[in-house]
Design a protein around this nucleic acid. Structure first.
Lengths: 341, 341
DNA sequence: TATCGAACTGTGACCGTGCACAGGCTGCAA
DNA sequence: TTGCAGCCTGTGCACGGTCACAGTTCGATA
């Protein structure tokens, strides 16, 4: 252990007191300067700012948190089963965007994964202990008890996508699912396809339910329930669904999958069956996740504005934490036409 | 605003004092019980535990942090350019494992992304401000200045994979890259392949460099530098590399890619050229990331023990934070033979 | 019986900040 | 001269823990 000289004491981190001393003012004034408070004389302000610079002062997060009762961090809460979390690149896109947006706003993003029941309990405990000021809820299934728990506990919560069964309770950032699906369906119709199948997502998720609604709306009388199969957004489920569809209806000329992954799975099934994409059957996806552009063939898909979604969620959550009322928000999607459809 | 009755005052969160009062002991004793301290009588312990249960007490993170000088959270720091972060499922696997392991140990995992230079500065600031107790450094390139900064600042740091240019400075959790590559090469040789090409990773990353070393070691005199092409682990780079290899050497009968993504890219190039996998050319990957098993054809690959890696990193980091010396750690990989090679 | 150490408990000081409050100063009006 | 309002500043306390230290109790031992 190195001996510590009394005079040149161990260099601890400068505190607000040190800054006050250097600037020749009191702690209160320094605090006011830091927190952008009014009622500080210009001289005092510059003196403090200079002192902050010279001392290399950084506010102590824990102390501030203790005094204000705010943690200064928000949670990115994933509630999907494991295999989806990590196959699906859309989660990563959201996470990346959220991390960036949070960092930019001086907030810390904490990643919470509620896969197993034990993990869910832990998260409930963690959140209600005040470790985070709010929660971004990603991909909740219908009537997920977690969202009720959070809302009941008064935890500021923002949902990604319309929270089925909790519409209006938690503010959400979502895309126009129905409208997007109609646009894609219209695109397929415009290309001359008439037997359009859908590989829908789980019907207890907004993307699963409303994209199917959009297809049905656009097809009208031409809608055939026999051409709908349900997957869980994963590529394997897409492959399985496609196999089931082929078995049931050999005359399909287009497939609209509710995710790029399912589209990719469908294409591999088609290919294995000797069916060419897009010559024999057109396949469209949804999300414009990373894989869409690089897929063989490149996927026609609906682009979700991931960066805007994550940014909007962070902003909305911080507003709610600050006590500002926020309405649900809907962001636009964009049809991206590539080779597959 | 609801009127607050003086008598039934607003229910604030119970503190350690409340627990002490209920249990009929002092704050100190409660603190000792909570922190597993010795020298607490059995009666006091049960009384405190009961009081904690009845009051629903949860320790205040900020207060503890202020008193101990520890934040109770660790950072998962990604330093890869964006396109890799989110295409590559291995990051997600690591992240998931780390989040779980951290949660289990009562630590919070904070996600930090250092993509742009501005982000890097922010992170330096953030980390040295003491927001986190330590850093898990993911996928650093050779002589990454960030690792030097962290080490110089005395921040406990654990690296994922051998940190090239900093061997021995920061403890690392890695796999036996050279040995793993030799095993895969041996597998290809045993299958009768003789013209084995490699799509290596970036030579400033451990996986890029040492997997190539392993191949070279195992091939010995049969090693042909013309059969090596470099990618950046992404699927597109694998596709490009494969095209370059085909141009240069038409007699290739096997390809060893340093990542599953590059293997997938290589296969799509081969397929486009009318070359069958594995009949004409065998293709092996590395990582056993999610896509390997579901790929068409399923990929032969080296499985990295992602859950063990992330868990080991968390444990190692927490040890180092606690002041325990830790040696670098090497975990075993496993050859997974599937259809592609 | 006096002494002593081990086991246990309580107390006060501190961690670094924000905030309410009590001033002080200044200039203007009465 | 006094009163007063508007700026600006300093002080004390609260936030909820941890920790060092000083007590207290009690059984064992000389």
């Amino acid at each position: 252990m190195p001996s510590v000289d009394e005079t040149t004491a161990v260099r601890r981190k400068p505190t607000i007191r040190d800054v006050a001393t250097v600037a020749g003012v009191s702690r209160g004034t320094v605090s006011r300067v830091i927190n952008g408070g009014r009622w500080v004389s210009p001289e005092a302000r510059t003196a403090v700012e200079e002192a902050i610079r010279s001392t290399g002062y950084t506010a102590n997060h824990a102390a501030r948190s203790l005094a204000t009762g705010r943690s200064g961090s928000i949670a990115f809460l994933l509630t999907e089963p494991q295999h989806l979390l990590f196959d699906d690149p859309t989660f990563a896109l959201l996470l990346r965007g959220a991390a960036g947006a949070a960092a930019q706003r001086g907030t810390t993003l904490v990643l919470l994964v509620a896969g197993t029941p034990a993990e869910r309990d832990g998260i409930e405990h963690y959140v209600s202990a005040g470790h985070v000021d709010g929660v971004m809820l990603i991909s909740s299934h219908e009537s997920d008890p977690l969202i009720s728990t959070l809302l009941a506990a008064g935890i500021p919560t923002v949902s990604c996508g319309i929270p089925l069964g909790h519409e209006g309770e938690a503010p959400a950032v979502s895309v126009d699912e129905v409208g997007s699906a109609r646009i894609m369906t219209r695109h397929l119709l415009d290309r001359g396809h008439r037997r359009i199948a859908m590989i829908a997502g789980p019907q207890d998720t907004p993307g699963g339910r409303y994209r199917l609604v959009g297809l049905r709306d656009e097809l009208g009388d031409a809608f055939d329930p026999a051409l709908v199969e349900e997957g869980d957004y994963s590529s394997e489920s897409g492959a399985r669904a496609m196999a089931a569809l082929l078995e049931r209806a050999g005359d399909i000329d287009a497939v609209f999958a509710a995710s790029d992954l399912m589209a990719a799975g469908a294409i591999s099934t088609l290919r294995a069956a000797g069916i060419r994409v897009p010559e024999d059957v057109a396949v469209a996806g949804f999300d414009d996740s990373g894989l869409a552009a690089n897929h063989q063939p490149p996927l026609t898909t609906m682009r979700q504005p991931w960066d805007r979604i994550s940014e909007a969620m962070v902003d909305m959550l911080l507003d709610i934490i600050a006590g500002v009322e926020r309405e649900p928000m809907t962001l636009p999607t964009e049809l991206v036409v590539r080779a597959s459809a």
